[in-house]
């Protein structure tokens, strides 16, 4: 960060139809929104100057998020509330800024700092029994490992490491709901639908649609767990 710049952190949601956006599409949409909002954004130096912007961990296509984050560097101070109002007026409704605030320049990047993701997953299958599913999921977790095939590669996750706490299974009007806390890291994070899918296939119920929402993105250190903002 150059002297005289201000690091603004924004929490936003990616919901509704816009959960079908890819991470790159979200980045472009937010860049354009920040320009429409006329934020006094800083521009990188060099041959290809662009907005100084940094994002937290990517959300996959089709996964919604309620607590996603980006940092944007401003060339002059603008009250956080004003940045939020301006952004809210310049973003499509399902890509909504929730809060914003300035953070210290010495903090590590969002992508390096955020290491816990909380997911809520709704299994869209009417005849699914909560108790049977909970047992199947428990059996997968107890097995200690999950092997995931993705894009022709096989990856084995150590579930004791990948899950930061026990999954919670509940039921509401729409059906079975699973809450998971997944550790994110450099070596690749467990996709929560892989774990739920493994449980479903144990009960011969694979193929059910799963609506995934990342409800929180957190930073865990020796002092405990906290939101980035």
């Amino acid at each position: 960060m150059a002297p005289g710049e201000f690091r603004l952190r924004v929490r936003y949601g990616k919901i509704g139809r816009l959960r079908h956006l890819s991470h790159l599409e979200v980045i472009h949409a937010i860049e354009r929104g920040a320009r429409r909002a006329d934020l006094p954004y800083a521009v990188t130096r060099g041959f290809n100057p662009h907005m100084k912007l940094a994002f937290g961990p990517a959300l996959p296509v089709a996964t919604a998020g309620l607590s996603e984050y980006f940092d944007i560097w401003l060339t002059r101070y603008m009250p956080a509330e004003e940045t939020l109002n301006r952004l809210a007026g310049a973003m499509p409704p399902d890509l909504t800024p929730v809060s914003s605030g300035y953070v210290g320049d010495d903090l590590p990047s969002l992508s390096a700092a955020c290491n816990i993701a909380l997911y809520e997953m709704r299994i869209e299958r009417e005849d699914l029994d909560r108790g049977t599913f909970a047992k199947a999921l428990d059996a997968v977790v107890r097995s200690g490992e999950l092997t995931v095939q993705r894009k022709g590669k096989t990856k084995v996750f150590d579930l004791a490491r990948s899950l930061s706490k026990e999954p919670r299974v509940s039921v509401d009007q729409t059906g079975v709901v699973v809450e998971l806390a997944v550790r994110m890291g450099q070596e690749g994070s467990l996709r929560p639908e892989a774990l739920v899918g493994a449980a479903l296939s144990r009960m011969d119920a694979e193929g059910a649609a799963i609506a995934v929402t990342r409800i929180d993105t957190l930073i865990e250190d020796e002092k405990g767990c906290a939101r980035p903002l």
Binding site: A29, R36, A62, A209
Partner: peptide, 16 residues
């Protein structure tokens, strides 16, 4: 249908 096709952003509208 969107989870079964490439580039779902083609079909979701909602643009600015």
């Amino acid at each position: 249908l969107l989870s079964r096709v490439e580039r779902p952003a083609r079909y979701i509208d909602s643009e600015w």
